[in-house]
Design a protein around this nucleic acid. Structure first.
Lengths: 226, 226
DNA sequence: CGAAAGCTCCCCCGAACGAGGGATGAACTG
DNA sequence: CAGTTCATCCCTCGTTCGGGGGAGCTTTCG
């Protein structure tokens, strides 16, 4: 079914720790079972942390948050049925105090910016070591924000850049699908001239040499999916 | 599957295994510590399997294979310092009987084909469930080949398609980087006409509508990296 | 209110692209 | 040996891109 109660029972240590008052209650939302397993194992190894629920998409994450109201939520950005960013926004809308750490494979800076804007308190790469992870969880739980160093520098690099507008992203996505400007125009019900204007803005904003390059840059930065 | 069932199955197999003493010795090669953690936990939960070594890149995987000669190797395709495909080739060159299962995030069919050609016995998506994974490990250990269903259908879809030649991939990569035909020509020391010929072939082979689309299709299929 | 940002549309024009053709030599393969 | 694939180069020609302008309109926000 949806999110499932975690088999915390397998760890004897956890039972002992249940008596302790300061458990960090954690929700993990990721569509990869293996990665959830890894996080689960990592959390099980920390006596002050407890995994209270898992979710495999954004909707489940929201539901699970309502049910369990965890102290910390580890959230993947790329998930089916409501992505991580939207899930963060939805959760923060209902629970403004929610502390959410974004977990991702790529260091697409736009994703990072969006996640932070949506209210994430931390942004980590999946390639991080266990030590960094538990440190970040404790840090965020203590009320601090934690952004990993390479993410921060990536973000700084593009801070000044304009983000693409919704319309520009729409155009670029259709271009990525192999549509000519004229075809995009018909699909969107606007004139070809307008499409060209949008593409001109996209090329400028992304510092791309041509439309192909623009698509590549946008995909790298997590602006569009292909 | 509920935890209680796992528990029951575990003790049952455990007894049997104690008598037979035939552990499946496993090597895990993946650059993500968290994923290794997940796999490690999964393997630890199977009484007939034992993790004998871990590697975080292709070179380490080869070294570890030489040292431990595992029954099964779980190998990620995308790793720094020698990728999974090359590692498979290298290992199979020394140990033709090696049974290797490829583990990947994407279902780029070309990656799958290359992995199979390099000598992999299985090709799995990281998004698979634990059950499928252990089943596949046992299956491959028993000498069968296992390719997950959606991978197989993806492969079948493009079986008839021509693969791109090395030259065509080179051209396409440079085009993806935002180079015009003329620039690619200079970089490769050939004429622009030749570049256009290569691109024409690429567009035909990938059934792409234009160069931008070709790059997107090639990335999706794992033909080029961006 | 007035400024700013976003979406829309229009012009010109040179460069780049892509669909047609065709051709040659090298290298591998049955 | 003939056949095939690959890489290279050449031609034409219509279409598409993309850079350079300008401009009207609505919405948002201080």
């Amino acid at each position: 079914m949806g999110w499932r109660e975690v088999r915390a029972a397998r760890s004897g240590i956890l039972h002992a720790m249940n008596a302790m008052e300061s458990n960090i209650r954690i929700l993990v939302a990721d569509d990869h079972p293996l990665l959830r397993e890894g996080l689960s194992g990592m959390i099980a190894g920390q006596p002050d942390m407890k995994l209270v629920a898992e979710a495999e998409n954004g909707e489940q994450a929201l539901q699970a948050f309502r049910t369990h109201q965890p102290d910390i939520t580890l959230m993947d950005v790329q998930m089916p049925r409501m992505n991580g960013i939207d899930a963060i926004s939805a959760i923060r809308a209902e629970f403004p105090a929610a502390r959410i750490i974004v977990l991702t494979t790529y260091k697409g800076d736009v994703q990072a910016l969006r996640a932070i804007k949506a209210g994430a308190s931390g942004y980590l790469l999946k390639s991080m070591l266990r030590k960094d992870l538990v440190e970040t969880i404790r840090s965020v739980h203590a009320g601090r924000r934690r952004i990993s160093a390479d993410i921060a520098s990536e973000m700084a690099e593009h801070m000044a850049d304009d983000e693409l507008t919704a319309r520009e992203r729409d155009v670029l996505s259709r271009v990525a699908a192999g549509n000519a400007n004229k075809e995009v125009a018909v699909q969107m019900g606007i004139s070809e001239e307008t499409v060209k204007t949008h593409m001109k803005n996209v090329l400028t904003k992304l510092s791309a040499k041509d439309r192909t390059h623009a698509v590549v840059v946008a995909v790298r930065r997590g602006i569009i999916d292909i």
